[in-house]
Amino acid sequence: MTEFMPLIDDLLVTEEEANNLTYFAFAKPLNGKPLNGKPHKAEPALAPTKASVGVLPDVLAGRYRIERLLGAGGMGAVYRARDLLSEQFGDPDPYIALKILSEEFAESPDASALLYSEFALTRRLRHDNVLRPHTFEVDTDCQRAFITMELMRGLTLDKLLCERPLGLPWKELRDIALPLLDALAYAHARGVLHGDIKPSNVMLSEEGVRLFDFGLGQAGEGILPGLPHLSRNRFNAWTPGYAAPELLEGQTLSASADVYGVACVIYELAGGKHPFRRLPSTEARAGYLDRELHPPKNLPKHCWPALHKALAFDAADRTITAAQLRDAMGATSSWLQRLRLRA
């Protein structure tokens, strides 16, 4: 557990950049007593389970009662929690999602700063298809930072793919691909890069498609100055099957790398198969797998040139933006003939 700590200390590249790091002081514990309240909305009753995740308390910041683990990422875990304060005021749906750093990262101010950075990046985005963050907080007793956000109910795309191994028919695919690309195009327009686009970071919720987890995200030049920037020279993380070759080779995150990731997701949704047999893109490139890439079965012909371009291994050949990919996928074939993608 201690092995990772030196790496965390190196999260920031240079000392100058380290000066930009916003450290926050941990306030003294307030009244640690949790508020009492009864749930108004019946979520599934909790079956007795027992497991240890460090010393995570039952109630965080005197307000959020942890109910169950929803997912886990590289540095933290996401739980469903009940906001006892909202509940006390009669909120019919006091449930939220809560992302907290894992125990091993909890003591690192750098890791907390990165979590804050994720919060700030996501808060910058106001789009129907981007998950809405609520607050960034610190539990003073256990000294752990966390983000609260809207609780999505639905299916993540990785689960959807497990249930639909042959992929989705075009109409269904389009209804996911278009809002997803719209969210990504919007984020890019706001100067926010995602950095880890993959099926499990997209939710098909009751309220539509939601892109989430900007934990490896980055703000563009001049956007949100003063926030610590995650440096991929020192801290490089990715999901092997969805990361563009240049990311795996340690280059800076770019909008084009996000386009590669989202194209892999759309390709997989269309036919149930990953474009490059799930291989990391660098290995797929070495094996010339792009030469045998076929359009997926459920994708209309007019969408293929754009998606194909988005899947280019060489960033220089990937000359298509998320917005252009969205326009190509959203175009009807009749006027698509007139649509030309910039070469």
């Binding site: 790496l7 689960k159 801290f235 490089n236 993380a237 999901t239």
Partner: peptide, 21 residues
Amino acid sequence: RQCLHWLNRRLGQELTVTAGR
């Protein structure tokens, strides 16, 4: 069974990995 197959994907190919680890 379906849930366990999904979890296999979630813990395997969907997992974010850190360089050098």
